[in-house]
Design a binder for these strands. Structure first.
Lengths: 117, 117
DNA sequence: TGTCGACATCGACAACCATCGAAACAGCGT
DNA sequence: ACGCTGTTTCGATGGTTGTCGATGTCGACA
């Protein structure tokens, strides 16, 4: 189950220079935009932050369901975050744990590095 | 014309700890998600990168129009980036120049800072 | 004043997306 | 084997969004 659709393989491509350094290419823009879009929903952003800030960097779905939408909707959003490569999931017993991919986080932060950096 | 709808005033609020530090609040999530969403479209991402990487950190619309969509569509996307606080615009003579707000860039990069940072 | 070029706005349309309830699926305990 | 709980998938629906052509606005220049 973990990482079923790695749309963006961070290891394959260090991905790109900061957006402020050189114009991003058409195909890179496609992939990077998908990641930003995934974080562009309030519910997904909260889910992501809940997981990222949890102890050990991972959390069970049952621990983060309280974001004001139905449980199927939570699952739907987690799937999107997974498809885009921001999260990985693993089943342990009854529960499914979600974890943040630290590499992909660094890539996105690097893209947004201010000019002088 | 410049900055007509500052949905997110960076100076007003240092905005929030990294997503990996503590769960983001509901209202903060709303505003931050709007910024990520703005970068979540390939055309907007390329426009933004074109401007951010231009000399002097600013560019005239006529210099960045070549992203494969019509001129009204370009204008539409630039407006969205402006509304969300990522860009500022200024008319000089016949041309309108767009510029990246460096502060807001730093905020977003800070939000994505990996765990250990 | 009239025209031209650079951008912005408007109105419309198709595609996409967030959300839900219902149903299916997967382990665990008894 | 059975039911229970946690999680995902499905189908439908209402709202959002990316895109376009047509039109409007503003400044420059004769």
């Amino acid at each position: 189950m973990s990482n079923p659709l790695p749309l963006l393989d961070v290891n394959a491509t260090p991905c790109c220079a900061p957006l402020t350094r050189s114009p991003i290419g058409e195909t890179d823009a496609e992939r990077v935009a998908a990641m930003f879009k995934a974080l562009g929903d309030p519910v997904r952003l909260r889910l992501f932050s809940n997981i990222a800030s949890a102890e050990g960097g991972e959390a069970c779905v049952c621990d983060i369901q309280d974001v004001g939408v139905s449980q199927p909707t939570v699952s739907h959003h987690l799937k999107k975050l997974r498809e885009v490569g921001l999260l990985e999931s693993e089943r342990r017993g009854s529960w499914v744990y979600y974890r943040v991919d630290p590499g992909v986080l660094a890539v996105m932060a690097g893209l947004l590095a201010p000019v002088g950096t």
